[in-house]
């Protein structure tokens, strides 16, 4: 799975993206490029639209009643909201890790094997075993669970559950991994492990992470986008955003004046 990712080319790009939930407009005219092979952090106060933007990329917003998306959002140059596009295939290319660890009430093995099974990625049991082991290894969980793969995924600790969910997402061999505040339910040690993992994963995947923690954004991301009230205020290199922001709003948020 060591696909070569040319750095700097844009994997996902949004142009004039608007999202409405019923009468309420959640995103206003977003223009944002997300480069391949990097970690892009989306930051901003609650309700600023960063999660909404994230959920546009794999069309999770489709399931929200009254959600309407206009403008263009492309993945490798092809429109994500094209009517011809199969959402199932899109989500196989764009994996997602959620705020709260949500392992299925199945065995650890079956949790990871779930995606490969529904997409028919393995020709036989041996190949499936290999995918599962590989994914657990990449998620840094293999050593901890190798001896108890048949135990329920819900029996793991919170941090282990979240890494299991990352393994589950990796198993489908996605190109992009979306993370919606993946550490907000974890303790500092588990958070550190997940952050370390994110750093390792960026060689092979394009990662977009929504986070409330500015330290986390600074630690794991190369690029940062700051959202406020449904608008994209500023985007740039993480170091630049945190040391020398152009916009006063960004300055105010990262120095903790509001948020």
């Amino acid at each position: 799975m060591n696909q070569f990712i040319p750095r700097g080319t844009s994997k996902i790009s949004a142009r004039g993206l608007n999202v409405h939930y019923g009468d309420k407009q959640a995103l206003h005219d977003i223009d944002l490029d997300i480069p391949a092979g990097e970690v892009t952090a989306l930051i901003g106060p609650s309700g600023c639209g960063k999660s909404t933007f994230l959920r546009c990329i794999n069309r999770m917003n489709d399931m929200v009643d009254g959600a309407k998306v206009t403008g263009s959002l492309t993945l490798d140059g092809s429109d994500v909201y094209d009517r011809q596009l199969d959402v199932v295939q899109l989500r196989a290319r764009v994996g997602m890790v959620f705020q709260k660890p949500n392992p299925f009430p199945k065995s650890i093995y079956d949790n990871v094997a779930y995606g490969p099974r529904i997409h028919g990625l393995a020709r036989d049991q041996a190949e499936l075993d290999e995918i599962v082991m590989n994914s657990l290894e990449k998620a840094g969980l293999l050593a901890e669970v190798e001896s108890r793969l048949s135990e329920s995924g819900t029996s793991l600790s919170g941090g282990q559950q979240q890494r299991l969910c990352i393994a589950r997402a990796i198993a489908v061999a996605p190109e992009v991994i979306l993370m919606d505040e993946p550490c907000s339910a974890l303790d500092p040690i588990a958070t550190a492990k997940v952050e370390e993992l994110i750093d390792e994963l960026r060689d092979n995947y394009t990662i977009v992470i929504v986070t409330h923690s500015m330290q986390q954004a600074a630690r794991v991301s190369q690029r940062t986008a700051f959202f406020h009230l449904g608008k994209l205020i500023e985007v740039g290199g993480t170091e630049e955003i945190f040391t020398n922001p152009r916009e006063p709003l960004t300055q105010g948020y990262i120095t903790g004046r509001f948020g």
């Binding site: 949500n102 009430p105 589950r168």
Partner: peptide, 23 residues
């Protein structure tokens, strides 16, 4: 969150119901 987890992996609605929700 379990349904979202399945949808996020590219499961269809019926796959989600039969394999995740009903169990």
């Amino acid at each position: 969150s379990l349904r979202e987890g399945a949808f996020g992996l590219g499961a269809t609605r019926s796959e989600t119901i039969v394999q995740v929700v009903l169990p």
